[in-house]
Design a protein around this nucleic acid. Structure first.
Lengths: 107, 107
DNA sequence: TTGACAGGCAACTAAAAGGTTGCATAATTA
DNA sequence: TAATTATGCAACCTTTTAGTTGCCTGTCAA
């Protein structure tokens, strides 16, 4: 999996909001996802395409609407593989920071 | 905290690599962080500035070098506040997905 | 079978991102 | 003090991104 695409996809606030909406109710159509947003349908459509390329969203056409579903796998992999790495040793880093910032006089 | 800055800062591969380097050895100078990278010092410096604005890195000038330290707090907050939200209900979403993708014929 | 509805495609634009070069400045060291 | 080292600052360039407008296509219902 390309972590880079996932990170890039998550970098945009509008796209994170779309994920939020799908998290609140999975399986929405493009039109529904546009409601109340200060963007054209085409802009939302592009964001969804980017989320799909990152594999964060999967869609399926049903009649004349296209339904969108969250794929939780990439978010989970970021949590496990990437964030997890930094969490190990987190307390050490924090103590380190405090030491460097607060007690700089006695080194 | 501005989650947006953190996400944007993490969107770039070079910046994630810089965090990796600091994770491997905390408290490095700009010069050290540049070694072996295919970028000018100024580019690295800009990346570090973006990481600092996102509060992912804290720096302190020591003599004529500036030392950089990871701040693990924002990464942790993303894990807790943002990713955590999606992990709850993750299995449901996954089952949902499978259902929609594999058994579409009997709906 | 003709509208209306939902979405897809393509060209274009403005702004932001990522990077560069050149020069300036502060701290060390010979 | 003069040269060197480590970094800072600013202007500039190119590509990507986020968004728009305009038009086309497929599906459903009257």
């Amino acid at each position: 999996m390309s972590m880079d695409r996932v990170f890039r996809a998550l970098a945009d606030r509008s796209r994170r909001r779309l994920l939020d909406r799908l998290h609140a109710r999975n399986g929405q159509a493009l039109g529904e996802l546009c409601e109340g947003l200060d963007m054209t349908r085409q802009a939302v459509s592009k964001h969804l395409a980017i989320l799909e390329e990152a594999n964060l969203v999967v869609s399926r056409k049903e009649g004349r609407v296209r339904l969108h579903f969250i794929n939780p796998v990439p978010i989970n992999e970021i949590a496990d593989r990437w964030i997890g790495k930094f969490e190990r040793g987190r307390l050490r880093a924090l103590a380190d920071l405090k030491h460097r910032l607060e007690e700089k006089t006695d080194e």
